[in-house]
Write a protein that binds this DNA or RNA. Structure first.
Lengths: 159, 159
DNA sequence: GGGAAAATATAATAACATTGCATTTCCACT
DNA sequence: AGTGGAAATGCAATGTTATTATATTTTCCC
């Protein structure tokens, strides 16, 4: 929990991306699915940013690189990446962010979403998950998925 | 916490609505704002349902009652109702639900959203708020707003 | 290299939300 | 009661996000 959640402005970003791409390959390998060129390109676009990007923003970025993609294709790819746990949907932004955490998909994650820079950090905590489960259970509610987001300002923007 | 969060199918719904409307009047009174006919109609529409309704769904319901409202007007009214703490936005549905809880706006609320019937229940819990604040703080994140939603199936639909 | 399944493309449209500006309603004050 | 100004609503257009239905291409296995 004590690790730096939002990357410092001067962090080694190439390393972030490398790490993410490697993980993407591993995950697809393990799932017996194909990390196609398009899927890779979409994931890379997200991994290159720590921000949550809208589907149409990603389309635009890829178009700048000479690749024209229809919305439906983008949403399909994003769906696959989400199911693989490589990408998260940030509901309060209608946007998507590459997963930089480890245990995504295995337990609830709390997203910190900076309204200034748009960057997203993930935090995990057993007791938060417990808490949420407990509250749902007390209402006899059967949990399928959780959406836990905090909107505000990250440390770097607060200055 | 132990109260019935999702209303039973046979609950006294007229009473729900009455209670909500009374509260709406009180809140607007206290805020020195006007609960106009339009605002009242929009809030009533939401209060008459325990479901989260999209802005265009509310427009349609009011149109059936002979009232034609443009999207922009609907969003403006919903904004006012939200600021008054009478209506919540359910981010994971792009929809709105009447507030049936009490302390909304004063502390974080966890919404239970049934994917089958669309109904929404609110649960509050000090320690959940603490937990979230604590996690945000450990990232030096300055919280402005929280989005806490659980998707799944309510007890009545689970049967 | 042929066939089936998976992935992507095309075109259209649905669903959600906002901008800029005009008009109406309401209320305080005379 | 009449009026001026602020608040609320209306109107038209458009921007943004997401999906449906169908066709084509790619990949992989045999």
């Amino acid at each position: 929990m004590a690790k730096a959640l939002f990357p410092a402005p001067d962090h080694d970003h190439a390393r972030c991306v490398d790490h993410g791409m490697r993980r993407a390959h591993d995950v697809f390998e393990q799932r017996g699915e194909r990390l196609t060129k398009l899927r890779e390109a979409v994931f890379r676009t997200l991994a290159e940013s720590h921000e949550a990007l809208g589907a149409y923003q990603i389309i635009e970025k890829l178009r700048e690189k000479g690749r024209r993609i229809a919305p439906i294709s983008m949403y399909r790819v994003l769906g696959v990446l989400q199911e693989a746990g490589l990408v998260h949907r940030i509901e309060s932004r209608n946007a998507f962010a590459a997963c930089h955490g480890g245990a995504c998909g295995t337990r609830p994650v709390l997203f910190l979403v900076c309204d200034s820079c748009g960057r997203v950090a993930e935090t995990e905590d057993d007791s938060l998950g417990d808490q949420v489960r407990r509250m749902a259970k007390s209402a006899n509610f059967q949990t399928k998925d959780t959406v836990l987001e905090v909107r505000g300002q990250c440390a770097h923007c607060a200055r």
